[in-house]
Design a protein around this nucleic acid. Structure first.
Lengths: 332, 332
DNA sequence: GACCCTAGCTAAACCGGTTTATCTCCGGCT
DNA sequence: AGCCGGAGATAAACCGGTTTAGCTAGGGTC
């Protein structure tokens, strides 16, 4: 089964290759009657232009790229990215090139390769680092890119972000209003920009806060929680940087006989089925819509628009059974 | 920043384009000294062949495709696919083109398009239907494909599958050995081949089984469970076709005051964090490894190997707190 | 020394598009 | 009538590779 090429269309319609190209792309240079004839022939033959050939003439690759740096097996639990990807797809007509790599170095090499190979028209940058080499790489390559989930403006790149600072503040305020004073935080990877932002917000709104580092796995969430609860002045509330660690923390609390929420309040960052079933109070954001917004931004940058920063709506705190008034204290 | 092309290499090395191509691809026709010189120049200039141009000369597209048919928002909860994708990536050096579409028609159109556009070297087919039009489409297009999670052999395509029949039988046997007789099943979409296989296995090993249709969502799992438990002869055990429905079912049971596992045993198909935290007995399979196996199969088919059927290891039943001896009865 | 063979390379065609230069009409204007 | 302009089409170059046909020089054979 041989697919028809532009040459076949030209022959069948009795015109030249060039005329066919002009006709199909709706450009001036052919008469309306010829255009109509060409379109007829093309659809009759089931013609589809080869992206490959088209990309060669320095046109578009009709694809965008996303690289995730993860230990491969850990990926499955991260509903966040799948939601994000689904949202991106909803706003893109082109395909998404997805690759999971194990290190930052590979990631950078991959971007360069995709660019050199003319494989993508643009890329999404996720998991932004504190001082991220990718930002300047993109500018130097001239590869359209959108920073997803950074913190505001990044070099000359477009950006779609949520205000982690304000979000963290709102969580802490909620806990404070419930009478909590000793609030702890189980943070995510400290190399990530949003972790730093949340740390800063946490530090500035909690007087006597404790921060324990985690890495988003259930194990680290459990370990951190155990440490916190076995200290001499255990916190009355813990804020986790993701859902997996929070759920693990809830289990540790249960196993230690610490009852939630009467003795301990728990809040998760990023809502999910996991939180819903664990009846965990969670900071919920519409990740799907977030992805869609990112895709729109990338599409417009690729289209030549000047990069803009789009701020996502503030995440909303969904209060469930895991948070309540501070124990013993006199709630205001 | 202009990337170097084969012409630049040729000029720098003082040879022709053709010679450079031969040298870089390790083919005969150039002397070893010339080859070495060309390679030196190429690496010095940071040369990377354009996949685009290469694909044009009817070589490979260096990418494989995967199309998922889902209502976009539903995707985030399906850890299964993310695991699968991660596993695939681990065994592929090429990129994965991923697209989520809403209907089977779009899916078929997309495969045809990718093929016509020379975009992929091969594709994965998931969610196989009872009589799936994609199977013959692939043969007629001549597009290398691997059926992932079908049931054995499919036309002339390679296949990587797990024995759902045997797996279901093993689950039922486990429940029977605990003394259960009235066993119910909350099935997945009846259009899917594996649902039919599981139905058949269930029907043949359970004497008085009830099957309720579900669609993998928490809502359908909850509704099905409510129906089952409010009947006149409620089952003592329920087997769910995925983790989300099972967890939802567990909640319904709790809300109805039916205690698990003393009054009701629950088993989920496909293990996940959700099951682990819900302490649900689950049929666990290594989805990551499954994806890796599928990728290997596709790579070899693309490489020209004749399609083979690879059977995955039998899923293993992980017994947790949600299953136990049948109530009242005399367990053997 | 004439002949042939082959290693090593170049030139050119080709893949399937886009784009530009060119060519040919045809109509309008002076 | 002569000139100009523009619409409509074509031929050809180009993108960056691969592949094939053809050329040349050198060595071996008789």
């Amino acid at each position: 089964m041989k697919r028809p090429t532009i040459k076949d269309i030209a022959a069948a319609a009795g015109v030249s290759k060039g005329a066919v190209s002009l006709a199909l792309n709706g450009r001036a240079g052919v008469s309306e009657s010829t255009r109509a004839r060409v379109l007829d022939v093309a659809s009759a033959l089931g013609y589809r232009p080869s992206v490959t050939a088209r990309a060669l003439s320095s046109a578009s690759a009709d694809a965008v790229g996303l690289v995730l740096v993860r230990p491969p097996r850990a990926l499955g639990d991260e509903a966040f990215f799948f939601q994000l990807i689904a949202g991106m797809q909803s706003e893109m007509s082109c395909a998404l090139l997805l690759q999971v790599v194990a290190s930052r170095e590979e990631e950078i090499a991959l971007y360069q390769r995709w660019w050199a190979e003319h494989r993508v028209d643009g890329v999404f940058l996720v998991d932004l680092l504190v001082s991220d080499p990718r930002v300047s790489l993109m500018s130097s390559l001239g590869l359209p890119a959108v920073v997803v989930g950074g913190s505001g403006h990044h070099g000359s790149l477009a950006s779609v972000w949520a205000d982690d600072y304000a979000a963290m503040t709102s969580v802490v305020e909620h806990l404070k209003s419930l009478g909590h004073r000793r609030i702890a935080r189980v943070a995510g990877l400290s190399s990530l920009l949003h972790t730093v932002r949340r740390d800063a917000a946490f530090a500035s709104s909690v007087v006597d806060g404790v921060v324990v580092a985690g890495d988003y796995t259930a194990e680290s969430g459990a370990a951190a929680t155990r440490d916190l609860l076995s200290g001499e002045a255990p916190p009355t509330a813990i804020v986790y940087d993701n859902d997996v660690m929070a759920v693990a923390g809830a289990e540790v609390a249960a196993s230690l006989g610490v009852s939630v929420p009467s003795e301990l309040s728990l809040v998760a960052w990023d809502d999910s089925v996991l939180c819903q079933h664990g009846r965990l109070t969670a900071l919920s954001r519409d990740t799907f819509a977030f992805g869609a917004r990112a895709a729109r931004a990338l599409v417009s940058v690729i289209g030549g628009a000047s990069p803009t920063d789009v701020q996502d709506v503030l995440p909303e705190l969904v209060v469930r059974g895991s948070s309540g008034p501070a124990p013993g204290g006199s709630a205001p």
